[in-house]
């Protein structure tokens, strides 16, 4: 498979005063890829997104978008990106259709193609029913959709979405995710978020940024390995003694959480679930709960940070 690099960031750094918000970040995104930018709040995600979209200039480094340098040829480069900031940039006194028409104009869509572009994007983003309503009167979820519509109206090569699901309710989140998946079929997408499942659901590749530095760049599969839980939570109505649990094959330590709830820590390659189930049935421990414990984003960060510092960082 041949890949075309659409966006390339090379050693970008950005300082706010003496605070280093983004520190020597380099990466690229290929055609048809969804790249997740994962990091806790204040890690430099939004700053990176602003730099990529040309809203901020980096202090050092360069960005090439579809062959155009963002700093020396901003107009050509910006024609190939669509950007949705954390707060969707909307003129709330306009109706959806008026606003999108204006976006088509400022993105240099030729007059003959404008109304078609507006109609296409309204349909794609599910805005048909609200197209004549004022943006100010729409729900947050719909406003977010208008924001996405604005970012893809000129069919850019790369779409940059900064926390597109923040502040939405679960149903809206699901709809927006569906929309992003849909967009990803035609555009490359850079997505920033602090929600881990979102990245797993949407992205092909993930980058973790912490304190302005990229500490992890790999595929989702590799990330999942980091996240693989090696803890089991079990609740037994008739629990045996804790030593019995500890002696199960594969279990390293057993810890009593409450009177009949236990946490079993095991070797990742030696999952004791089956042994535990068999024993529970034959010895009548009356198992009522068995769940693998998920790592939180913080755990994964800690895991990766520890991993990076113990093994010398190979990829920067």
């Amino acid at each position: 498979m041949t890949t075309t690099t659409l966006l390339k960031a090379d050693g970008i750094s950005r300082y706010y005063g003496s605070h280093r918000a983004v520190d020597n970040v380099s990466f690229e995104i290929n055609k048809g890829e969804v790249l997740g930018f994962l990091g806790p709040n204040g890690a430099g995600k939004s700053t990176t997104m602003k730099i990529l979209s040309g809203n901020l200039s980096p202090n050092t480094g360069e960005i090439t978008i579809n062959g155009y340098d963002l700093l020396s040829q901003p107009k050509q480069a910006k024609a190939h990106i669509g950007y949705l900031p954390e707060q969707p940039p909307l003129y709330k006194e306009l109706t959806v259709i008026e606003f999108l028409r204006f976006c088509a104009q400022i993105n240099n869509i030729s007059p003959s193609k404008r109304s078609q572009a507006v109609n296409t994007v309204i349909e794609r983003c599910g805005l048909t029913d609200v197209s004549n309503r004022l943006i100010a009167n729409l729900s947050k979820g719909y406003q977010q959709r208008v924001g996405i519509a604005q970012a893809i109206i000129h069919t850019p090569a790369v779409v940059i979405l900064d926390e597109p699901t923040s502040g939405l309710d679960p149903i809206q989140i699901r709809e927006i995710r569906q929309l992003i998946r849909d967009i990803a079929t035609e555009h490359s997408v850079i997505l920033s978020t602090h929600i881990l499942p979102e990245v797993q659901m949407l992205c092909d590749r993930v980058q973790i940024i912490n304190q302005g530095q990229l500490i992890f760049t790999d595929t989702i599969a590799t990330l999942s390995q980091y996240m693989q839980a090696s803890n089991l939570l079990v609740t037994l109505v008739n629990p045996p003694s804790i030593t019995t649990l500890q002696e199960l094959e594969g279990v390293i330590t057993a810890e009593q959480v409450s009177s009949n709830r236990f946490r079993l820590h095991y070797h990742p390659e030696h999952n004791p679930t089956e042994t535990l189930l068999n024993k529970a049935v034959s010895l009548q421990w009356k198992l009522t709960e068995l769940s693998p414990e998920h790592h939180s984003l913080e755990d994964v960060f800690m895991n990766i940070i520890q991993h990076e510092s113990s093994a010398k960082p190979e990829s920067m």
Partner: peptide, 9 residues
């Protein structure tokens, strides 16, 4: 940002 990220100088 709408204006700044559009291809406008």
């Amino acid at each position: 940002p709408l204006l700044l990220s559009a291809p406008l100088s």
